[in-house]
Computed example of a mutant assay.
Amino acid sequence: MDYRFEEDYNLSPNEIDITVRSRSLTAEVQGVLTYLSRYEAKAPSIIPLKTKDRMEMLKVDELVVVDVDADSLILETLKGRYMITERLYKFKERLNNPDFIQVSKHGLININHLQALEASFSGNMLAILTGKRKADVSRRYLRHLENALGL
């Protein structure tokens, strides 16, 4: 991948013009376009959670791990645990935050709370998170996590 900066005095001071060129629309190109579209969308710092009996305001930076349990999501935070009924992919879209990486078919982690990765059975990894929380990292999603960590 090649990228460069060019000054263009015809643009207004706050204007940025981006052109992505490639021989074809590959998965890598689509990834760049998706990244650029998410870059402009501001990630929320607080997300409302509808629990069984009330509405809670969750500070996103306190969220450590998200895990699927049957038809519910379990949200492990620095201050406790929430259980909500929402699909994982929908919750990830609501987060709209590149710090939350999907590490398995049923889980997300906040890489800001990742303390270590340990080898587990059959090529999987185990993510050790803040507060001694743990999450399985499947081989299928390990590459995404490594990319997010700059490896």
Rank of each mutant, 00 (worst) to 15 (best):
K50I: 04
I128F: 02
S72L: 12
L25N: 11
K90S: 13
R38F: 10
H113W: 13
R21H: 10
L142K: 14
V29T: 11
T19K: 11
H113A: 06
N147P: 01
N112T: 05
Y82E: 02
S138D: 03
D67H: 14
L108M: 07
E86L: 01
A41D: 10
V29Y: 01
L142T: 14
K132D: 15
S22K: 00
D8S: 14
N110W: 03
M55S: 10
A135V: 02
S72I: 03
A70T: 15
L114P: 02
A148L: 04
H144L: 14
L75W: 07
S120L: 12
K52S: 14
R133A: 04
D71L: 07
P98T: 07
S45V: 05
G123N: 12
L73G: 01
I46C: 04
P48C: 07
D136I: 09
D53C: 08
L142V: 15
R143I: 11
A43L: 06
T26H: 05
N124L: 08
D71Q: 12
I74C: 08
L49M: 05
T34A: 15
R23V: 11
R133E: 06
L126V: 05
M55I: 10
L108K: 03
Y89S: 15
V103C: 11
V60T: 06
E76D: 07
D17A: 10
G80K: 01
L63C: 07
T51Y: 08
F121L: 12
H144R: 14
Q30C: 06
N10F: 10
V20I: 09
H113T: 12
I84V: 07
D53T: 09
L129P: 00
L95N: 02
S45R: 03
Y3T: 03
L117T: 06
E146G: 02
L117P: 03
V64L: 14
S72T: 09
V66D: 02
A135F: 01
G123E: 14
R139H: 01
S24Q: 13
L75A: 02
D136K: 11
